[in-house]
Simulated assay, not measured.
Amino acid sequence: MELENQTDVLEFLLLGLSDDPELQPLLFGLFLTMYLVTVLGNLLIVLAISSDSHLHTPMYFFLSNLSFIDVCFSTTTVPKMLMNIQGQSKSITYTGCLTQVCFVLAFAGLENFLLAAMAYDRYVAICHPLRYTVIMNPRLCGLLILLSWLISVADSLLHSLMLLRLSFCTDLEIPHFFCELAQVIKLACSDTLINNTLVYSVTSILGGVPLLGIIYSYVHIVSSILRMPSAGGKYKAFSTCGSHLSVVSLFYGTAFGVYISSAVTESSKKTAVASVMYTVVPPMMNPFIYSLRNRDMKGALKKLIGRTSFL
Rank of each mutant, 00 (worst) to 15 (best):
E2Y: 08
E4Y: 07
Q6S: 05
E11S: 09
E11V: 10
L14P: 00
D20H: 12
L23I: 10
Q24H: 14
F28W: 03
F28D: 07
T33K: 01
L36C: 07
V39L: 06
V39Q: 01
V39I: 10
V39F: 08
G41V: 02
L43Y: 10
L43D: 00
I45P: 03
I49Q: 06
S51D: 11
S53R: 15
M59V: 06
L63I: 07
L63D: 04
N65R: 02
L66F: 07
F68K: 04
I69D: 03
F73R: 13
S74E: 01
T76M: 14
T77F: 10
V78R: 00
V78S: 03
P79V: 01
L82Q: 01
N84I: 05
G87Q: 12
Q88C: 04
S91T: 13
I92G: 03
I92A: 04
L98Q: 02
Q100A: 10
Q100N: 07
V101L: 15
C102R: 15
F103Q: 14
A106K: 10
F107R: 05
E111H: 11
A116G: 07
A117N: 14
Y123C: 02
A125D: 09
C127H: 04
P129W: 00
P129L: 00
P129R: 00
Y132A: 03
V134K: 12
N137D: 00
P138V: 03
G142M: 04
L143E: 02
I145Y: 08
L146N: 09
L147R: 08
S148M: 08
W149Q: 12
D155S: 11
S156D: 04
L157P: 04
L163I: 09
L164R: 13
R165S: 11
C169S: 13
C169E: 12
E173Q: 13
E173F: 06
I174H: 08
P175F: 09
H176V: 01
F177I: 00
V184I: 15
I185F: 05
K186G: 07
K186R: 15
L187G: 09
D191I: 01
T197F: 14
T197G: 15
V199G: 00
P210T: 06
L211Y: 10
G213H: 00
I214G: 07
I214C: 07
I214R: 04
I214F: 06
Y216A: 14
Y218I: 05
Y218T: 01
S223K: 09
M228I: 08
P229G: 08
P229H: 09
K234Y: 00
K234R: 15
F238I: 13
S239G: 07
T240S: 13
T240W: 00
C241S: 09
G242R: 04
L245T: 05
V247A: 15
V248Q: 03
V248N: 05
S249E: 06
L250Q: 01
F256S: 05
S261T: 15
T265E: 11
S267M: 08
K270N: 14
T271K: 13
T271A: 14
A272I: 00
A274E: 05
F288C: 05
R293G: 10
N294P: 06
D296F: 02
G299L: 11
G299I: 10
G299C: 12
K302A: 14
L304R: 11
T308Y: 02
